[in-house]
Design a protein around this nucleic acid. Structure first.
Lengths: 131, 131
DNA sequence: AAGTTTACTCTACACTTGTAAAGATTGCAA
DNA sequence: TTGCAATCTTTACAAGTGTAGAGTAAACTT
């Protein structure tokens, strides 16, 4: 299975997040879940979801008159594609400048910084042991 | 001046990168600069740039029959918006999980990790002194 | 069986983005 | 003055995305 590009639109992100959290689920369920943040009618949601099926982002299973949707893309895959896209657009595809930018631009708490530092130390050990 | 959202499309990113590198510059210049990576005609580029003017992403200065374009958005602003958008879509707006994801997903060299660690230490000092 | 509820299907419109050809204008060279 | 190059302007089409109403069908209740 070749690596597919999963470039999700704003609306698709909202929907697939709801699907990940509730799969397998029906379209009306997704509409209800998103109701509080999106003023979408069932009709809008259904259309978007069926288009996502056509794009290979969701898959369906029919049980009598009910259609259950599941994500055809993992959260990690989708996140990875989103980040790669951002890096490509804004940083010529380079992740390290992007991370540096993130660190420079955002007010992270000491706790968060410490946590990241710990992760980096771990990564350094892994990088070292793998060399 | 209120903080504007600068959500740039794929095409807009290519164009504004070229403008940042050559501003102030004319549309034909941008077309030539992008020629090697984008098979766009002058007409396409001009249309996109004029739309970007309408969206407040570029500004113009007319000298006789020549229109010179400059970016109305700094590279940092645009990069920031791109990252915030990615974070919002893929990480519910949270930067730390995004950062962790980046660290988990990319094979960084020891040197790169050290560099990031240094930045974090610097940020920790700043965060501490600001509290 | 009729009525109601739930979900699906069909259809359509508006806007954005990408793409670009054809025509018009300006400025310069011959 | 004419011709040409460079640039601008006008116009248009296609595909994707967002949005959703009206009609239809299935399942359940009375």
């Amino acid at each position: 299975m070749t690596k597919k590009k999963h470039d999700l639109t704003e609306g698709e992100w909202a929907i697939i997040q709801a699907v990940w959290s509730n799969q397998p689920c029906a379209a009306p369920t997704v509409q209800e879940v998103l109701q509080s943040e999106r003023a979408w009618t069932y009709s809008t949601v259904k259309t978007m979801m069926d288009r996502m099926v056509a794009k290979g982002l969701l898959k369906t299973e029919r049980i009598r008159n009910l259609i259950l949707y599941s994500a055809a893309v993992t959260r990690r895959e989708a996140q990875h594609c989103e980040i790669m896209r951002a890096a490509k657009r804004a940083f010529d595809g380079a992740f390290t400048p992007m991370m540096q930018f993130l660190l420079d631009s955002n007010k992270l708490s000491k706790e968060q910084l410490t946590e990241l530092e710990t992760i980096i130390k771990t990564k350094k050990v892994e990088a070292k042991s793998k060399r």
